[in-house]
Design a protein around this nucleic acid. Structure first.
Length: 278
DNA sequence: ACGCGTGCCTGTTGGC
DNA sequence: TGCCAACAGGCACGCG
């Protein structure tokens, strides 16, 4: 399940391959994977050059030379990988695979595949007025790496929901999913079902530091490959070998040695240590 | 306004 | 061995 470190890794592995190249066309093999009222066929008309590849929260962004269509200034393509989405770069011609949903045809036969077994992911344009026309885009908050400590404290404090639930809300803080929520809460020594509003200023600052640390550590290891996630070059990440809690229910805590517990918080499987987290 | 439960979607896993 | 329910979970949506 690609979260911030995985999307960041895909962006970093994709950028050197496709930056500076023109998009010739887009093939949509599954209608629901193209989530825009503007037609993807306009790419074949404008053939924009990709400038850079970036990330906003868990959205992967391809910025290209803007063009105007139906009164909208199109700035680039946004991909949300959700759970099983993958982006692969191929320098050689390649047949679509079973789960290939979108193919981006570049110059010289090079292509980018958007594969997505469960079809939760999507691709669409982002435009100069996405803040008016795209609710998710408008509400998407900064990620922990972009936030100053005081910004994080301000965003989270006073919320009545469980702190884990708050961490998963992309309009409060972006980029975090089930894995990094559990890992950061463990590092910070905070129980996942504590009400966010019950956390002290010191705990909130520690949680922010823990989030930044776990996200940066994971980026260093090219993200976590549980099952589906790969880099744009098809390589696995290795941060899954560094997990303290995620997927380790019943196994011993790396710090105190006691078995880790599991419960549902915010509707998600949650693993934690009753001894090390308060 | 906010928190919570449900549906979307399909491949994998585990129990009988 | 085969069947099938349970499970994985980000986000939109509807309800109270």
């Amino acid at each position: 399940m690609p979260e911030l470190p995985e999307v960041e890794t895909v962006a970093r592995t994709l950028a050197p391959e496709i930056a500076g190249k023109k998009i010739r066309s887009l093939d949509c093999l599954n209608a629901s994977s193209w989530e825009d009222t503007l037609p993807s066929s306009c790419l074949a008309v404008f053939q924009p050059k990709i400038r850079t590849v970036g990330r906003r929260g868990k959205l992967l962004l391809m910025f290209f030379d803007p063009f105007v269509l139906e009164g909208q200034t199109v700035l680039g393509l946004a991909f949300h990988l959700k759970m099983t989405g993958r982006l692969f770069y191929y320098s050689e011609p390649k047949e679509a695979e079973k789960h290939t949903r979108i193919i981006l045809n570049l110059e010289n036969g090079q292509r980018v595949f958007f594969d997505d077994a469960r079809k939760f992911g999507y691709c669409r344009f982002f435009t100069e007025n996405s803040a008016q026309t795209w609710t998710f885009w408008r509400k998407l908050a900064k990620d922990p790496l972009e936030m100053a400590p005081a910004e994080f404290v301000q965003a989270v404090k006073g919320k009545n929901a469980a702190v884990k639930s708050v961490l998963l809300q992309q309009d409060i803080v972006s980029g975090i999913g089930n894995i990094y929520a559990d890992e950061a809460l463990f590092r910070a020594g905070i129980l996942p079902d504590r009400k966010a509003g019950s956390l002290s200023e010191r705990e909130l600052v520690l949680l922010h530091e823990s989030l930044k640390a776990v996200l940066e550590d994971s980026i260093r290891f090219c993200g976590s490959s549980i099952k589906d996630y790969r880099t744009a070059k098809g390589d696995v990440g290795s941060f899954q070998n560094k997990f303290h809690v995620y997927g380790r229910e019943g196994q011993n805590c790396h710090f105190c040695g006691r078995p880790l517990h599991r419960k549902t918080v915010a509707g998600r499987t949650t693993v934690y240590c009753v001894c090390c987290q308060k």
